[in-house]
Design a protein around this nucleic acid. Structure first.
Length: 787
DNA sequence: GTCTGCAAACTTTTT
DNA sequence: GTTTGCAGAC
């Protein structure tokens, strides 16, 4: 297609609204697309790539498209191939970490890594740190391994090596020292953690001028999804592919097309910097016309959208954006108050039953919650009601212990120096190598400064024989896997390691055996997908100026050989990367039509006809750990915004007066977010002003509460009996007033800062020296005035 | 070397 | 309440 064709003439742009079309057809300049929830963000991103290709502005090899999750990357590839018959294999579309892996594999020597380097997932990283701490006798009270892991990952996310970390106090100095030692250990063992993938490839591009120049020449268009979730290092990484214009110079480099939504930034807690969006506009001098807002929402009815807009309007730090829809008002947002979390769960189940009777597919119903701990009550209620459900989150396939054991053997075949894997399976299945023997081996390795594998021959005696036997076993596997296909290698390992045999004998081992068998399937389908074993066809590409020949056959090319180096990755090595970078599906109680349960974080990017958001209580949502500062609270509000905008047609919000948490009954006020929703969109199923303890004896396990009949001695559900404290009684004798000193059973002495509401709804803001400032319902919390 | 029992933690999470 | 990790007993 000639370049002078008017952009809108392209059939690609046909179904888009004006803003979307404008974004898709922007010239090759830096751009920031502010894409609201449900505004067709992925569509714009993929159509943009297709448009660039079709108009001949760039060839498939000149596109770099980055996402955060494998799911998003896959989706992009799928949609793109639906738009154009293009060889997506030759394109660099993937997650940050996936692309970093690709870079480091291609240039492993310059990056200072062995060709067979292995990737540590979060679990592996923690066990590597624990091992290190043990070796150096680190006091794990003072330096918990988890905290060190957090520290190290945090440093890497900020682009800092150990020598770059400013260490003011003794504690930090020690941590930095351990960071350096950890790095040494990883280097020696030929392993990299997730943060290292990013940092190492960043340094590679930064320090190797030739490589940087090569990729800068190659990638004319760089597209980034979910830009609001990028951390400091990821943004710096992007800058290496397209340096921002320099002062006084007005050279437009490779075009960076960033898509994001500051209102959906919910990952600050793990290092995401929303500020990158503003920095990007400034540093890349993104002109106003290239800052496009997508505000047309194609998902929700306007009552739901109004609620979302109104809520997020309470955030101060925003770029500013308002969603609109043509879908009509739709139903009101329903709000329910329950007396206990059990009652809440039961209410949800009752509503779902009604929805199912109205023929809403169960898979179109989602129950969202702030924290995983909330799922159990709901699960129990769903289970008792016989409603099929599916929980997202939890252990994923490649994270399961038995699968990790099998992977450890596979990794040792590739890289015998991988001590983490070595230790994982040295005595698993049990072969009589105890802690003493392991220590002996570790001592030798430490003294010699070599890997455990290389230290084996130096260990003598019975321990030495047993360990040598293990190494011999792995060596046999390595020899026999030479030239075999991946599936056979996996089967060989499962058999020869004795893993299958071991779990077969275990009482509860059936599922584990099945998972191991599933690993064989995973290997087989991986080979199919990646095209290993098939004839590799060289990519023929029509000159960019002529655009793509739409009739050309879609050519296939294995992922492995890298276009830049021609190096080939073995199927096993590629599979191991895949296993580490893509931990597989969450336990899918697969297939059938089931109600969807997940945290709000996990729901990002998904949508459902009907959505329940439970546990909307102060301390829970917003979560108490995030309530202290404004940034934390604003993130909670964005989280709520994400939750609301998941719903297409019907939204239920619910809160409970009490909740069993950590084995204790907690009394919660309803979330402040209720007060931030516009009244005209809401339908209170229970009167909003009602609270207190009336009638809950009969309602504790479900059913709606009889209103207005206070019961003098609240009978309580079994949950009550579990707690030692007596049922709180509203103290109507002494009124709590602002300025008063009070005593609370749990928080001790405090000072009342403010009192709000009246009667059963009255609540007081109390400042406790040890527990901070809290809002307490006077009908619930027992506050005794003190002189 | 393996099993049992108790203590401690516990927001959110992708790679 | 549940899971996970470590210590002590067998």
């Amino acid at each position: 297609m000639p370049l002078d064709t008017p952009p809108n003439a392209s059939p690609l742009v046909a179904g888009l609204n004006p803003e979307q079309a404008a974004a898709v057809t922007l010239p090759a300049e830096h751009a920031l697309i502010l894409a609201g929830a449900g505004s067709g963000k992925t569509r714009v991103l993929t159509t943009r790539i297709a448009w660039l290709l079709q108009t001949g502005q760039v060839g498939p090899g000149g596109v770099l498209a980055v996402t955060f999750t494998n799911k998003a990357a896959k989706e992009m590839v799928t949609r793109l191939s639906a738009l154009l018959p293009v060889n997506v294999r030759g394109m660099w579309i993937g997650t940050f970490h996936g692309l970093c892996n690709r870079l480091l594999r291609a240039h492993h020597q310059l990056a200072g890594l062995p060709a067979t380097f292995q990737i540590l997932d979060t679990q592996d990283q923690l066990s590597a740190i624990k091992r290190l701490c043990k070796q150096f006798n680190v006091d794990d009270e003072r330096f918990p391994p988890k905290q060190l892991q957090y520290f190290i990952s945090g440093c890497k996310e900020d682009g800092m090596r150990a020598r770059d970390v400013p260490a003011r106090d003794e504690d930090t100095r020690k941590k930095v020292e351990l960071y350096a030692l950890y790095e040494e250990q990883c280097q020696r063992e030929g392993v990299v953690d997730f943060g290292e993938l990013m940092l190492r490839s960043y340094e590679l591009l930064r320090d190797q001028d030739a490589i940087r120049a090569h990729y800068q020449r190659r990638f004319r268009h760089i597209l980034i999804d979910e830009f609001q979730d990028t951390n400091k290092l990821q943004y710096a990484w992007i800058k290496l592919f397209s340096p921002p214009p320099m002062e006084g110079l007005d050279v437009q480099g490779n075009a960076v097309f960033a898509v994001g939504d500051d209102d959906q930034s919910i990952y600050a807690f793990r290092g995401a910097r929303v500020g990158n969006m503003a920095d990007f506009v400034r540093e890349y001098r993104v002109p106003q016309k290239n800052q496009i807002k997508l505000e047309q929402n194609y998902r929700s009815v306007s009552n739901i959208l109004d609620a979302a807009n109104h809520l997020i309007g309470h955030n101060q730090r925003r770029l500013g954006k308002n969603l609109r829809t043509e879908a009509g008002a739709g139903e009101l947002v329903r709000i329910n108050e329950s007396v206990s979390d059990f009652a809440e769960a039961q209410w949800i189940v009752d509503e779902i039953k009604a929805l199912v009777r109205e023929e809403v597919p169960r898979s179109e119903i989602a129950i969202l919650y702030r924290s995983n701990a909330q799922s159990r009550v709901v699960e129990t209620a769903l289970f008792n009601a016989g409603l099929p459900y599916r929980v997202y989150g939890g252990l994923r396939f490649f994270e399961r212990a038995e699968v990790k054991h099998a992977l450890a053997y596979l990794r040792l075949i590739e890289n015998p120096r991988d001590d983490t894997s070595f230790l994982r399976v040295l005595n698993f299945p049990p072969r009589g190598i105890g802690a003493r023997s392991v220590e002996q081996l570790q001592d030798v390795a430490r003294a010699a400064g070599c890997s455990l594998h290389d230290a084996v021959s130096a260990v003598t005696g019975r321990a030495g024989t047993a360990i040598a036997g293990f190494v011999a076993k792995v060596d046999v596997m390595r020899e026999r896997s030479e030239g075999s296909n991946l599936k056979d290698i996996v089967e060989l390992v499962l058999e020869h390691s004795g893993l299958v045999e071991h779990f077969r004998q275990e009482r509860e081992g059936q599922e584990r055996v099945e998972n191991l068998e599933e690993l064989v399937n995973a290997a087989e389908s991986f080979v199919m997908q990646e095209g290993f074993g098939r004839e590799a066809v060289a990519l023929t590409q029509s000159p960019a100026s002529q655009g793509l020949d739409l009739n050309a056959p879609v050519l296939d090319q294995p992922l492995a050989p890298d276009a830049d180096t021609g190096e080939t990755l073995s199927p096993l090595a590629a599979f191991l990367s895949h296993a580490a970078l893509e931990s597989g599906d969450n336990q899918a109680q697969a297939g059938q039509d089931a109600v969807q349960l997940m945290t709000v974080h996990a729901a990002k990017g998904l949508e459902f006809d009907c959505v329940f958001i439970g546990g909307l209580e102060e301390g829970l949502f917003p979560h108490e750990n995030a309530m202290s500062d404004r940034d934390g609270l604003e993130e909670e509000r964005r989280l709520m915004y994400v939750a609301i905008t998941r719903a297409r047609k019907r939204l239920y919000l619910s809160h409970s007066q009490t909740r069993l948490l950590h084995g204790q009954t907690r009394y919660n006020l309803k979330s402040r977010f209720f007060d931030e929703l516009p009244e005209h969109c809401l339908k209170w199923l229970t009167p909003p002003q009602a609270s207190g303890w009336g009638g809950m004896g009969s309602a504790g396990w479900g059913g709606h509460r009889a209103m207005g009949a206070p019961v003098p001695q609240p009978a309580w559900s079994p949950a009550w009996k579990a707690t030692s404290a007596p049922p709180p009684e509203p103290d109507r004798g002494t009124p709590i007033k602002s300025g008063m000193a009070v005593f609370h059973n749990k928080f001790g002495e405090g000072k009342v800062l403010a009192v709000e509401g009246a009667g059963d709804d009255a609540r007081a803001q109390v400042s406790f020296p040890r527990h901070g400032t809290k809002w307490l319902a006077l009908s619930v919390a027992k506050l005794t005035p003190i002189e």
